[in-house]
Nucleic acid binder design. Sequence first.
DNA 1: ATATTTAGTCCACAACATAGACTAATTCGG
DNA 2: CCGAATTAGTCTATGTTGTGGACTAAATAT
Lengths: 390, 390
Amino acid sequence: MSQAVRHDAMRARNLALVLGEVGARGAVTRAALAEITGLTKTTVSKLVGDLIEGGLVVETGAVRDGERGRPGVEIRISGRHVAALGLEVNVDYLAVCVVDLARTVRLRRTQAVDNRAALPVDSIARLGDLAANVVDEAVEKGLRVVGGVLAVPGPVDRATGDVRNAPNLGWRDVPLASLLQHFPFPVRVENEANLAALGELWFGSGLPDFLHVSGEIGIGAGLVVRGRLFRGAHGFAGELGHVVVAPDGPQCRCGGRGCLEQYAGQDALLAAAGGVRGQLGVAQVAQRLREGDERARAACERAAWALGVALSSAINLVDPGAIVLGGIYAPLFRWIGDVVGDTLRARLGQMRGTVPPVIVSRLGAEAAALGAAGQVIEQVMADPAALLHT
Amino acid sequence: MSQAVRHDAMRARNLALVLGEVGARGAVTRAALAEITGLTKTTVSKLVGDLIEGGLVVETGAVRDGERGRPGVEIRISGRHVAALGLEVNVDYLAVCVVDLARTVRLRRTQAVDNRAALPVDSIARLGDLAANVVDEAVEKGLRVVGGVLAVPGPVDRATGDVRNAPNLGWRDVPLASLLQHFPFPVRVENEANLAALGELWFGSGLPDFLHVSGEIGIGAGLVVRGRLFRGAHGFAGELGHVVVAPDGPQCRCGGRGCLEQYAGQDALLAAAGGVRGQLGVAQVAQRLREGDERARAACERAAWALGVALSSAINLVDPGAIVLGGIYAPLFRWIGDVVGDTLRARLGQMRGTVPPVIVSRLGAEAAALGAAGQVIEQVMADPAALLHT
DNA sequence: ATATTTAGTCCACAACATAGACTAATTCGG
DNA sequence: CCGAATTAGTCTATGTTGTGGACTAAATAT
């Protein structure tokens, strides 16, 4: 429910408006901000003054624009004070990163760990150490880490931040919220596929509308519409892996049959490409593809066709502006992109004038950790007043 | 992009907040409104004063609540002044209705017309006459019609309000916007499936989260999340009819194969139920079902199974709070509801604790016209200041 | 060197919400 | 039946914030 608007809320919104415009345009003078926002020069000056005082933006030197008249002073987002922590637990690695308010990645660490074999508590403790290190380094650089988000591969209870069941990780009822309380700033928990999509939004293509597909053991999707993540009624939207490809297809672990995961999930793809299960990684498949291995090629084609079928359902339902393939699909894009695109055109081309373009994510495995940190930054950008008054 | 907030915007938002609370609770005193909204009694009194002056709310007599202290005066939405026009063109009928601000349906008219056989201009002219009549009647009742929305079965260009292609009606490039200009209030155009979903939201079950399925010749779906319609990047979301049920199934008019429409669309269902095409209506099939006709039963079962398969994909993707079956599925619900539910439970039950309930729409064919009028009402509720200042 | 132009600041003012005093209308207790 | 207590609603002084126009600052054009 919306809240009452008082003078402080008015100010908070206008601060966010100005900060947002500065972020969107990179560098703007106060005069230009007044023009853009419709606020008066007076108001913009006062707002910018507050933002400068809070360390969120900085004045850069005067502009020599060659026009006549007094040159304006450009304002830009300051990356020197406020920063955010991104954390990720995945099946076979831990990752942390620190991102500043200008969305520059200042620090990152990755550690290869088999988190399926470890206890959740130990994985989290290890991640905590890793995070403590980068936070210390960030503090040395003069940064103030104002919050963190942890990406986990599985559904997260939005209310408590706990994980009820993350099958890929072997986690059940892990009280994450309480394990993350020792940080000197709030840390929230969020689904990895959602955060990967947001990572793509803030650090990748820059498109405002897309469906990001995270190919891992499961296949998650994050839908971004007008720069906002779509979550559904309970926060479980985006389970692309269990969209039906063929209703009488192979039995899936979810209880259904013929789910996408059985055709294009990591396990199915590797099994089809290489024979002995567990012996082959995605990198090796890519290598074999480069060498022209026929079996690997056929496996990719089948997976890509299935992905195309599932995506055609997804496009009909949610009308995304583009399809971004990430996770294991990123290194395999050369061999699956076209088949996916052709399948979409065959199934959708007649109905819709244009089929959403299928593009590859440029972020790789970092996407989720970046999205996690980015979400904190986004929160600051959306409500800078909350930070200024503390 | 968000806009600058000035004093007038602050006031506008608080007016909307108060009006919204009055709408949500039916009847509230100023004191209760102050408590609920967090605004002071002074402010609430002033806001309510403005709303009364504008005819949007009325004071009803003092409350005798038995408590001690001065009794409050209850405020409720006034249905006596502001009203909205809902219009619908469908394949075989035209419909108009007038709804007041209290969301009471004040007038409705339906006319059976074969709009596929008629020229678009003639259909619209006929609809215009029908609308002019009810608007006159509304004016006689002291109502002020402040806007209208027209529901059409097909994708609508959100920018212009024109219809590029509505295959079920046989419309191509109909400049609806210009045909609707003669009304003394603005009339927008919107997709019929979306409006039917909104009709369900405002005049039906009252649920805030659901996917409404409009079974007609095509199968449209409207997704409502937290009381808001999800439209997708271009406004074409909800094409449930072309979600894949079986990738090698029957050829569909969209170019794909095995789309839901080929199993559960009106034509497919009637053909499977009755043999000779075009000879049978949904009402007759329902009659045969009541008589225990085996062929009709089998047709429904097949359609329901396919609907379940497509909906399981939809639920995985968009995570709706419930499934509401409308259009032709409403009269057939007795014979399809259980199969749909069973299919969903079989495909989703293991993954999700609970499967969204499958319920029937209570609105029938009026859903879209009601949703159309409701959308205007909703606009007034969301920004009453726009109406007060004119 | 002076006029012109544009950027940014200053100040009086207006709009709106707040806080608390005040009035109004009811119930409770004697 | 009357006064105390209680709750609803109004009135007034005050504070915060944005506006608009005057003013100062710093550049280019002539």
